[in-house]
């Protein structure tokens, strides 16, 4: 594990991975979008609006995966003081927030024609809105605390406390009566999506996942570079 802990080695490894990840993102996204619009059938109940699912479900999935990455990184920062953990957690936040926002907006655009409303305060929708606020609060906390060590610690604790929301989101549709339908993809006994509709969905999930890691690596690199710039400037100040 600590083999990748050295920031210089991390940058070298990510430079090696990035071209591949970017290619995978572009290929999966192109293939996924082609299938969504040209090679997938209308739903028997929902007609063409089922196409919103192919962006809504992957975005919602990434919103939760992003927060899980943030929480695991925060835990390894607090417990093992892993030297890259803070940067990974911090880099994941804006990406997760973007996916959460996408899930909320596309869900609203889907809910209006199908449910008959843009928004309801049911357990699923409300807990996802809370997820967005957790992301935004986490990002604000990093900016608010000047001392980077203190900021890292406070943010890691916030990320871990907020993690209780993730299982609540996942199981909200099972625990309480909600307007939102139960899970289709990740559920016991296999998915309840027809294969013709499952393929574009899986391609879009793959594309979003590859995109997530491209941006994550870019942002971790940016944070490491920023740290080095600050160290260099301090050294220069000391010299003069």
């Amino acid at each position: 594990m600590h083999k990748f802990a050295n920031p210089a080695r991390f940058i070298r490894l990510s430079d090696l991975l990035l071209p591949w990840l970017m290619a995978v993102t572009v290929i999966l996204l192109t293939g996924g979008l082609y299938m969504v619009f040209f090679a997938s059938p209308d739903d028997y109940q929902q007609g063409a609006t089922v196409r919103i699912m192919y962006v809504h479900v992957p975005a919602a999935y990434m919103a939760m995966l992003g927060y899980s990455v943030m929480a695991v990184a925060s835990a390894s920062s607090l417990i093992w003081k892993h030297p890259l953990a803070d940067q990974i957690a911090r880099a994941a936040a804006p990406i997760g927030a973007a996916f959460t926002l996408i899930a909320l907006i596309t869900g609203s655009l889907w809910g209006r024609p199908m449910w008959g409303t843009w928004w309801v305060w049911d357990a699923r929708l409300t807990s996802v809105l809370i997820l967005l606020f957790l992301y935004l609060g986490y990002m604000a906390l990093w900016e608010a605390i000047e001392d980077p060590i203190k900021a890292a610690k406070a943010c890691a604790i916030l990320a871990l406390v907020g993690f209780v929301n993730v299982p609540i989101i996942k199981f909200s549709v099972d625990w309480w009566n909600t307007l939102h339908q139960p899970a289709s993809l990740f559920k016991m006994g296999g998915s309840s999506i027809h294969p013709e509709m499952l393929w574009p969905l899986l391609l879009m999930i793959g594309a979003f996942k590859a995109y997530f890691f491209v941006i994550l690596l870019w942002r971790v690199k940016t944070l490491l570079i920023g740290r080095k710039i600050r160290a260099l400037r301090m050294a220069q100040l000391g010299d003069n």
Partner: peptide, 24 residues
């Protein structure tokens, strides 16, 4: 409903990618 959903999603992802790349 469908076209705005895709426009907003891809737009947000592009803006985030562009901003992350530029800062790096």
């Amino acid at each position: 409903y469908i076209w705005p959903a895709y426009a907003v999603s891809l737009g947000l992802l592009l803006v985030l990618a562009w901003q992350s790349w530029r800062r790096m």
